[in-house]
Structure formats: C-alpha cells, structure tokens
C-alpha cells in the first residue's frame, strides 16, 4: 500500500516510446473509437509503468505491452457490452462459399483500407482482438495466445473464423456501397467496378 517501488519515468519513457504508436492503434482498432482508444492506451502504459520492474525480458517488450493492451481493451469492452456467444456467431452463416471475385480487390488502396477498417469494426470483440494482434500488428500465434491468455488453438480458430467473416464483409458488394463515399468525398458509381 505504501512505498511501492517505481522505475525512473525517463528510462521507462525511452523504453516504451518506440511502441507508443503501435499501442495506440492496437487500442484504436480493438475499441473502435479514438476516445476509448486513448483511455485504454493510457491505462496500458500506466499499468506497464507500474509493473515495469517485474518485467524479466522473457518475452519481447512489444509482446508484453500488447498483452497489457489486450487485457485493458477486453476489460473495457466487457464493461461496455456483454459478450455474445461465439457459438451463435459461428452458426450465423458468415462463411462465403462461392468463388465470385471480391469487389474488395477492385478498389484502390485507400478505399480497400477504409472498407477493411469498417469491416473490422463489425467483428465481434473477441475475433477483432485476434485479428488486430495477429494480422494488423504481426504477432505470432504464440505471442497472441500469451497476450490474450488463451490457448494457441483458440487463437488459430478465432483468427480463421474472423478472416472468413471479414471475407464475407469485404465480398458483400451491396454493403460496400450502401452509404460509403470515397475518401476524397466523391460517390463511386456501381458501374465503375464492372
């Protein structure tokens, strides 16, 4: 309660500043809005500071930080809304079976990223977390499992499902153009894609 030892703030800042951006955008992609992202990212770094002296370097510093960020974000999401059953989601018919070309591929890079960002927001929290850690931040399955405190098998399984959901979203021609505009504000015609 009293007299807790804390690291030198300057030394800590030097150590984690290179990961500031990654932590922020991880939180942003998991939480879905910049306000929650700032809160969670700040909380992540604060917790990391308090526990910094106990970090033994067994894992990479980035992995350790991602683990804290994931925990903070999942706690925040749980507090905001109850989790829906993953089993229900898995039976919702999200898997795309046909071989039709995805309109996603026909878009320009900026538009693809905008579509991808929107599709990410639609994912359930647990799936989104693994996609952000593995696909966006490049963690291995082992590192993601450690960060989320789940088995590696669960990481693989959720990632697989999440990617299929994203594929379905990105392949849904109608949804892409329902209320979307280009990044520069112009509306794209359907005919342009064909």
């Amino acid at each position: 309660m009293f007299g807790r030892k804390l690291p030198d703030p300057t030394a800590f800042e030097e150590a984690v500043a290179p990961y500031e951006r990654q932590i922020y955008f991880t939180c942003l992609r998991i939480m879905g809005n910049k306000y929650d992202a700032e809160d969670c990212a700040q909380e992540t770094l604060l917790r990391a500071y308090r526990a910094f002296l106990s970090f033994r370097g067994e894992a990479r510093l980035s992995t350790w930080l991602y683990a804290i960020a994931a925990r903070v974000c999942m706690d925040a999401l749980r507090a905001k809304r109850p989790e829906s059953s993953l089993d229900d989601l898995m039976d919702a018919g999200w898997e795309k079976e046909d071989d039709a070309p995805s309109p996603y591929m026909a878009l320009e890079e900026n538009e693809r990223k905008a579509a991808l960002g929107k599709a990410l927001e639609e994912l359930p929290d647990l799936f989104r977390a693994v996609v952000v850690l593995c696909d966006l931040q490049g963690l291995t399955y082992e590192e993601a499992a450690q960060a989320l405190s789940i088995p590696i098998g669960t990481v693989r399984s959720r990632l697989n499902r999440a990617r299929k959901m994203l594929l379905k979203q990105l392949s849904d021609y109608g949804e892409l153009f329902l209320d979307e505009t280009r990044l520069n504000g112009e509306r794209r015609d359907k005919d342009e894609l064909q």
């Binding site: 500031e20 951006r21 922020y24 700032e38 990212a41 700040q42 990223k113 696909d135 994203l166």
Partner: peptide
C-alpha cells in the same frame, strides 16, 4: 492483399498529440 492492407492500415495516420502528452504526464 488483405495482409498487406492490414499491416499498413494505419500508415499515414498520426497518433494524437493529446495522447502523447497525457500518458507521459500520467507516468510523471
């Protein structure tokens, strides 16, 4: 394409200055 887009999703986006300042102040 998907993986490349994922890895570069936030390229060009800036970390808000408010966040940069706030976590440093919190640590201090």
């Amino acid at each position: 394409t998907y993986l490349k887009d994922c890895r570069t999703l936030d390229e060009g986006s800036e970390v808000p200055d408010s966040f940069k300042a706030s976590w440093r102040q919190a640590i201090i």
